[in-house]
Amino acid sequence: MFCRRLAIVVSLAVVGATACAQDSGGLPLDSTAGTSGDESRVSSEMGTSDTVAELPTGNESVAELETGDVDDGASYWAGFGVPGAIEIEIYENLARFVNSSTVVAVVQALGPGPQITLHGDPKVPEDVYTITSLQVRVLEVLSGELTSGQEITITGLRAPVGPPSAAPAILFLRHHRDPRYLREPDPSQVADPVDRQALIEMLEVWREFSADKYQVVNSQGVFVAAGERIANPIRHTRAPDSLVSELSLLSFAELKEAIRSVAGHPELASKPGDFICCEPPTEG
């Protein structure tokens, strides 16, 4: 029912089926400008990125890099705290997922990037949390605008432990300044002056930290690959997820092709529950 798999994906890409209503995906939100404030509630530090013995140069083909162990890769990426608790949206349709992402790319981890420690509620002094980041090299762009060989930084709640896995990963990413996902509160709407000032200060630092960084869209958005096997190391195994279940049956090459086939075709994403979306147009 869900799965029409790769043959349909490819054919849809060629035909450019238009039977489905357009679905923009995402949640357009207003951004609000902050004002200056001291940074006493915020600290940041740089992580190290020189812990890898053999980093890819960016010139390797993905095929050359598909030699990592998928289990090691899954363990490594599982340590990256991408959204994974209660999430605002879980996708049931690949076309919608792809076209709701700022970029979908094959990457290889380079190592930890900068991290920042933020304070939450000013009335709860112990409410302190850290946002980590991971630096990756883009090996192949499947959707969106990035360049192979480019190095980007991805934020998360935790950083992977140990040396980066050699296994490449397909990441569904959103840029922190993608207007579809720029979810920031408006300090002027905060009645409490202490909370308002704390929020202004936090947003100022947060904007500076996140301006050039990406975030994995959700817990569905990491697929580690090695040869014919792929794995999604983040998604909760007990959370019903028809999309990840079906995608996990594909080979790495098939998954990349499926993503490419729907990239730029948001009109293919309108039927909840469909794997790739959509039924070929019927006559009459």
Partner: peptide
């Protein structure tokens, strides 16, 4: 129980 504008994309967690 804490709530704040945590800004990293997760709705709720323990």
């Amino acid at each position: 129980l804490w709530d704040w504008w945590y800004t990293h994309g997760v709705v709720a967690w323990v």
